[in-house]
Computed example of a mutant assay.
Amino acid sequence: MTDRTPSRDRWAADIARLDAPASPARKAPLSAERIIDAAFGIVEAEGYEALTMRRVAVLLGTGPASLYAHVRSKAELDDLLIGRLCAEVPLPTPSVDQWRAQFLAVCAGLRDQYLRYPGISAAAFTAAPQSLETMRISEGLLAILLAAGVAPLDAAWTIDAAFLYVSAYSLEVALRTRAEERDGEPSRDRGELAERLRMLPAERFPNTVAHADELTSGRGHERFDFTLNLLLDGLRRP
């Protein structure tokens, strides 16, 4: 019969291994993905205005210099953040018949991604996009407009205007929401705002007083849709 009893030396080694203090958990290696994840966590909890490379470094338990080996600057981090959000926006196959609805759907999808993180759309204003995912959205919108017969120059400038509007609209919503949370006061409803406008001196503000309801109208994203439709209405098509 084979002797299955462990040798004395092996037994001693096993006991020593069990008695040895547990080694501290190894820290996950730093990477661009971890930096982006940490940045999103900061924005979600504190708003985009709180995001700095130093703040990310503290959250990851390292120094700012360590981050620059993976993300070269705050501007590049901003671009990577926007790129990841853009990656979540689906792009349709361009359709001549559905081009307007497709364009609006892509813009609405980008808006909704921005609104997930308070003020994140401010990152879209910092530099020209370098991320391939961000360029993917531009390429998709360009394909939609070109399929509809829009001239390339008109299409390019329309996309630029749409990006600016989506970013600004999302930033305004985020800033207003953050202010309400900070002050602990809900925003005034539209009826209250209209009433305040009607209280203005009519001799100085005759049109504002007369059209207070129109000036304060709109629910949800109605004004967002209106503005983008107005932009598309100005396009020349064959």
Rank of each mutant, 00 (worst) to 15 (best):
T5F: 04
R17M: 13
L18M: 15
D19I: 02
D19T: 14
A20I: 05
A20C: 06
R26S: 03
A28V: 15
E33S: 14
A39K: 10
I42R: 09
Y48K: 08
M53V: 13
R54W: 07
R54F: 05
T62M: 03
Y68K: 14
Y68E: 08
R72H: 14
S73G: 10
A75I: 04
E76K: 15
E76W: 04
E76R: 15
L80M: 15
G83N: 08
L85W: 01
C86F: 00
P90D: 09
P92S: 04
S95H: 07
V106T: 04
D112K: 10
Y114S: 07
Y114Q: 06
Y114P: 07
R116W: 09
G119L: 12
F125E: 06
S131M: 01
L132Q: 04
L132Y: 03
E133Q: 09
T134N: 05
I137V: 09
G140W: 00
L141Y: 01
L146R: 06
G149S: 06
A155Q: 04
A161V: 00
V166R: 08
Y169F: 15
E172M: 08
V173K: 10
E181D: 14
R182N: 07
D183F: 15
P186V: 13
R188M: 14
D189C: 15
L193N: 10
L193Y: 01
R198M: 13
L200G: 02
L200I: 03
P201R: 11
A202S: 12
A202W: 02
H211Y: 14
H211Q: 13
D213M: 01
E214Q: 14
L215G: 07
T216F: 08
S217Q: 14
S217T: 01
G220Y: 01
F224E: 08
N229C: 10
D233E: 15
